[in-house]
Structures are given as C-alpha cells and as structure tokens.
C-alpha cells in the first residue's frame, strides 16, 4: 500500500513549477502622458506594472 502511494506521488514530486519568465524590455519610439524617468524594466524595478497591449483601431 505504501509502495503504491509512493508510486502515485512520483509525478507530483517530479513537477517543478517553472519560474515566472522575465518580461522583454519595455521599448517605445515615444511616450505620451508620462512623468518621470522613461519607463523601462530598470526604472520600474520595485513596482508592479500592468501593461496593456492595445491599438487605436
């Protein structure tokens, strides 16, 4: 019974959640409506960032 339980647990033991991937750098040809240092991963370190990918159409 114990052996069965161990075998059943193997897939769970093998599962390692992948680390959340690093975002690509935040780039722009120009910025509107921003105050402060140009937004980048470095300038925004220490803050949670919500990025909206959008278009005018």
């Amino acid at each position: 019974m114990k052996r069965l339980a161990l075998l059943a647990a193997l897939p769970l033991l093998a599962f390692v959640p992948a680390e959340d991937p690093m975002s690509p750098e935040i780039d722009a040809k120009s910025w509107s409506r921003h105050l402060g240092q140009t937004p980048s991963l470095q300038s925004l370190r220490g803050r949670a960032v919500l990025i909206e990918a959008w278009a005018t159409w």
């Binding site: 680390e19 959340d20 991937p21 690093m22 975002s23 690509p24 991963l41 925004l44 370190r45 220490g46 803050r47 949670a48 960032v49 919500l50 990025i51 909206e52 990918a53 959008w54 278009a55």
Partner: peptide, 19 residues
C-alpha cells in the same frame, strides 16, 4: 512569449519585472 496574438491583452509584472 505566451502564445497570445490578439489585443487588447493585459500583462502583469511583479516588482522584479517577471510576468
């Protein structure tokens, strides 16, 4: 990175810049 083609779409980064 996440296999998403359409917009609008939101991405939330933690303070280390991780998605």
């Amino acid at each position: 990175m996440v296999g998403q083609k359409g917009i609008p779409h939101s991405y939330l980064l933690d303070p280390e810049g991780r998605l």
